[in-house]
Each structure stands twice: as structure tokens, then as C-alpha cells.
């Protein structure tokens, strides 16, 4: 009898503690999520606010009294955002495709082929992981701008970024994880290396391959320093750099800033929301970058 009571008391105590812990967990996570999302919220509300709306008088919820879409129109007309978007898309898509190709090719060569000098080439490729592009700014500037005269061309913005040891490293890893028998079976079926890579191996590792592609797209879209360095002409600028210049040109019209920012992140955020689960899973799987 006595022991039953004690047991029940204990159970109740555990429930309480457990329940409270739960609530605290949710609370903490929600607060952090709120803090991270708030800037996005402000970006939207500010972008929709009237230009002359009193700046100091925003309420605690910060919802504009009237919704004004004309900020977007004005921002779009103030700077050649159409051109910026074209540049960003063009550069990001071409770079990503070329990068995926070289990563798959390099990864395959290191994972599945055997040839003299392979080990040294592999070490050299891995070694470049230790050399950040930022510290090679000056010689690369000399190569691209002074020797090749590639300033204000897409070449300067695309070609140096089409290869990275990271992509090759990652593809090699996932290729090595595929069973060896797959290649043997394909070989008996009469498959050559290139066909095997394209028809059998890449479809196998598609999730990782696509994750890599999406991330590369994001990183390329995010590119800034390089664009600053190699573009002078306005029609070569990307959205990122265009936005940066835009903020200094329109002064402190924050609603225009926010409208422009919102436009510039829209493709990325949409793409992210579209692939978010695969992307997060992909990053979890391979522990990217």
C-alpha cells in the first residue's frame, strides 16, 4: 500500500519535471527562432511602409499602418536591377554547372581510376583546401585584370570558381561509398567509364550532388569581394554588389533599402524553402564546408 503511494508520488514528480523541461526547451527554441527571424520580419514590414511614415512611431508589433508596394517599383526603377538579376543568375548557373562537372570528373578520377602520379595530384588538390582564395587576391588580380584583361567580363567572375578541391573531395567520398560490384557489373554489361559515371554512379549519389549544386549556387550568388574587384561597369554588377551600391546612392530611405534587399534575397529564399529538407539532410550527411 505504502509503496504504491510512494510510486505514484514519484511518478507525478517526474511528470512535472519532465513537462517543465519540455516547456523550457520549446521556449528557448522559440525565442531563438524569433530572434533569427525578426530581421526578416522587419525587412518585410519596413519595405511595405510608406516613405513618409513617422520613423519613430512604430508600435511594438511593427506592422505598417498601410501597405505600400510602390517601394518595390521605385527600387526597381532606381537601379538596373533587371540587369543585376540577369548577371547573378547567369553567373551562378554557369559556375554551378561547371563546378558540378569538374567535381564529378575529378572525384571519379581520384576514386575509381588508377594512373601514375595520382597520389601526388591528390595531395596537391587537397592542399588547396588550406589556401583561402582571399589571400591570393593580389596575384589573381594581376593575372585576371592585367594579363588577361578580363575586368568587366563574365570570365573573371566565373572561370576561377569552376573548380574547388572541396567539390572533388566530396564527390570522391561518395563515389567511394558506392559498392565496387556496381562498376564490375556495369563493366560486364559493356559499360565504359564515362557512361558508368553518367548513367550509373551520378544517379546513385544524386542527393549529395544536388546539395553540392544548390550550395554552390548560394555561394556564387553571395560572391562580393570578387565582384567589387573585377567590375567597374554597372551592367556587369550582380545583385549583391548592385544592392550595396544602391544603398549608398539612395541615401537613408530605409523602405527602399528593405524593398531592394527583399528582392535580392527572394530567389535564394524561395530556392531554399523549396529544397530545405534535402539541403539540410544533405549537409547533415556529409558535413559540408
Amino acid at each position: 500500500m505504502n509503496s504504491t503511494v510512494t510510486f505514484e508520488r514519484k511518478l507525478g514528480w517526474w511528470r512535472l519535471r519532465f513537462g517543465a523541461g519540455r516547456a523550457i526547451t520549446y521556449l528557448v527554441l522559440s525565442v531563438v527562432a524569433l530572434l533569427i527571424l525578426l530581421p526578416f520580419f522587419w525587412m518585410v514590414t519596413t519595405a511595405l511602409r510608406a516613405p513618409d511614415e513617422e520613423l519613430i512611431r512604430f508600435g511594438p508589433l511593427l506592422i505598417p499602418r498601410h501597405v505600400h508596394f510602390e517601394n518595390f517599383v521605385q527600387a526597381w526603377e532606381t537601379a538596373p536591377f533587371g540587369r543585376y538579376f540577369f548577371n547573378s543568375f547567369f553567373i551562378a548557373i554557369v559556375t554551378t554547372l561547371a563546378f558540378l562537372a569538374t567535381s564529378a570528373m575529378g572525384g571519379y578520377a581520384f576514386a575509381r581510376l588508377r594512373f601514375p602520379g595520382q597520389h601526388i595530384l591528390w595531395l596537391a588538390t587537397l592542399g588547396t583546401l588550406m589556401i583561402p582564395a582571399e589571400v591570393l587576391l593580389i596575384p589573381n588580380f594581376i593575372t585576371l585584370a592585367k594579363w588577361l584583361h578580363w575586368s568587366d567580363t563574365y570570365y573573371a567572375l566565373i572561370i576561377p570558381w569552376t573548380v574547388s578541391a572541396f567539390g572533388i573531395f566530396l564527390m570522391r567520398q561518395v563515389f567511394l561509398q558506392q559498392p565496387k560490384e556496381l562498376w564490375e557489373a556495369a563493366r560486364l554489361d559493356g559499360c565504359g567509364h564515362l557512361r558508368f559515371l553518367w548513367q550509373i554512379l551520378l544517379p546513385q549519389v544524386r542527393p549529395t550532388f544536388l546539395t553540392l549544386g544548390v550550395l554552390k549556387f548560394f555561394w556564387t550568388w553571395d560572391m562580393f569581394l570578387w565582384v567589387v574587384l573585377f567590375t567597374n561597369a554597372d551592367d556587369m554588377r550582380t545583385v549583391t554588389f548592385g544592392l550595396y551600391r544602391f544603398t549608398s546612392e539612395v541615401g537613408t530611405s530605409y523602405e527602399l533599402w528593405m524593398a531592394a534587399s527583399l528582392m535580392s534575397i527572394a530567389p535564394i529564399v524561395l530556392l531554399f524553402l523549396l529544397v530545405r529538407r534535402q539541403l539540410i539532410e544533405g549537409i547533415s550527411r556529409v558535413g559540408l564546408r
Binding site: V32, A33, M43, M258, S261, I265
Partner: peptide, 20 residues
């Protein structure tokens, strides 16, 4: 997803918001 959103947001656009 919410936590990750700030990571994938292009840096310059995020900086513009933070300047505000």
C-alpha cells in the same frame, strides 16, 4: 529551417537589413 535561413541569406542583403 528558421535557424538556417539566416545562413543562406546573401551576406550583403543581410548586412543592409542590419545597417537599418
Amino acid at each position: 529551417t528558421s535557424f538556417f535561413l539566416s545562413y543562406i541569406t546573401p551576406t550583403i542583403a543581410a548586412v543592409v537589413v542590419w545597417r537599418w
